[in-house]
Structures are given as structure tokens and as C-alpha cells.
């Protein structure tokens, strides 16, 4: 037994150097030729830098709003609501979000609101909304910003990300990029 422990200790040290050390440095080396040297993909607007994949809180009426988040889009942490589908407290919360949305967007009927806009994401940092989720906000933004609806429709079409290779997975919109585009519209 003692012999096995001694071998175990020596082998552990050797494998730590290799798998925690050399492997990590090797991947770190590859990162240096990856986009933004492996520090996450960044988009710039007006000299400010944002992480493209980290969702942001957009609650202002003049922006396309993002999904509800259990962590308020603070990417220091991450988290979902972890509410069960039959939890009465949770269902009341969803109903409240729908009511609020209908007040903020008086031209929209309830059956046009897609579920993603009134439910929290898994990470609390979801950078995307569905295409329908953007479309139902057109009327409000057009009024708030005094912009023609057709321009907003065009903006949404330009920012719609198609499924991977056109066939795999859902369509979606990056809220940050959509809003950066929105700020640039005249």
C-alpha cells in the first residue's frame, strides 16, 4: 500500500505540471492568435467597449429591451431564476411582466408577445432576444424616438442572425448590436 501511495504522489506531481500547467499554457498560447487574444469578443461604439456576448440590461423605453434577468445583467456573477414551472409566485410574476409590457406598449396585443420577453434566461446574461421579441417593440420605439417604423423594421432585418449555416438552430437578434444600430439611425 505504502508503495502505491509513494508512486501516487510522484505521478500526481508530474501530471499536475502537465495537465494543469503545460496544457493550460498551450491553450493560452493558441488564445494569442484568437480574436481579441482570448479576452472575449468586443464591439466598440463611440469609443466605448462592450462584450458582444454578455447581455446588457436595457429597460429604457427608447431602446429595444432585453429579457428579464435573475441577476440584473451583472456579469460579475450569473444565474437563472430556478423557478419551477408550477410555482404560483413565479406565474404571478410572469403575469405582472405581461401586464407591464402591455402598459408600456399599448398598441400590442397579448398574443403577439413572445415568451422569451417575459421569462428569465438561464444565465441571466442572455445577449439575445427572438426576432418577434424585437418586432413587438417597434411601435413603442418609433413613438419615443420619432422614427418611421419602416426604418426600424429594416434595422431588425439587418440584425437578424440566421440559423447556423442556414439550417441549424433558432433565429435570434443580439440586443446590444441592435441598440447600437438604433443609436446610429437618424
Amino acid at each position: 500500500m505504502k508503495n502505491y501511495i509513494v508512486i501516487g504522489i510522484k505521478l500526481t506531481l508530474a501530471t499536475i505540471v502537465f495537465f494543469a500547467g503545460i496544457y493550460t499554457l498551450f491553450i493560452f498560447g493558441i488564445a494569442q492568435i484568437a480574436p481579441n487574444q482570448g479576452k472575449g469578443i468586443v464591439v466598440e461604439s463611440n469609443g466605448k467597449k462592450f462584450y458582444k456576448n454578455i447581455g446588457q440590461s436595457f429597460t429604457d423605453a427608447k431602446y429595444f429591451n432585453s429579457r428579464p434577468s435573475a441577476v440584473g445583467y451583472n456579469a460579475a456573477g450569473s444565474g437563472g431564476s430556478n423557478k419551477g414551472p408550477s410555482n404560483p409566485e413565479y406565474l404571478a410574476e410572469v403575469q405582472k411582466r405581461i401586464d407591464t409590457f402591455l402598459i408600456q406598449n399599448p398598441d400590442i396585443k397579448a398574443n403577439e408577445i413572445p415568451a422569451d420577453l417575459v421569462t428569465a434566461s438561464g444565465s441571466g446574461l442572455d445577449p439575445n432576444i427572438s426576432v418577434q421579441g424585437a418586432k413587438v417593440q417597434i411601435k413603442r420605439i418609433a413613438k419615443t424616438r420619432n422614427i418611421e417604423e419602416s426604418k426600424l423594421e429594416k434595422l431588425i432585418a439587418e440584425n437578424t442572425e440566421k440559423p447556423l449555416l442556414g439550417v441549424f438552430g433558432p433565429e435570434k437578434i443580439n440586443v446590444l448590436q441592435l441598440n447600437i444600430g438604433l443609436d446610429k439611425l437618424k
Binding site: A110, E112, N128, S130, Q132
Partner: peptide, 17 residues
């Protein structure tokens, strides 16, 4: 509640998946 749930059960899920 009368909303559009064609995207399925979205609570706790990411739009990109």
C-alpha cells in the same frame, strides 16, 4: 396567459439555443 409560446418553455433557457 394568452401570450405567444411558440418558442417553447423559455424560462431558464437561452434564446441562442
Amino acid at each position: 396567459m394568452g401570450i405567444d409560446t411558440t418558442a417553447g418553455a423559455t424560462e431558464g433557457k437561452e434564446v441562442r439555443f
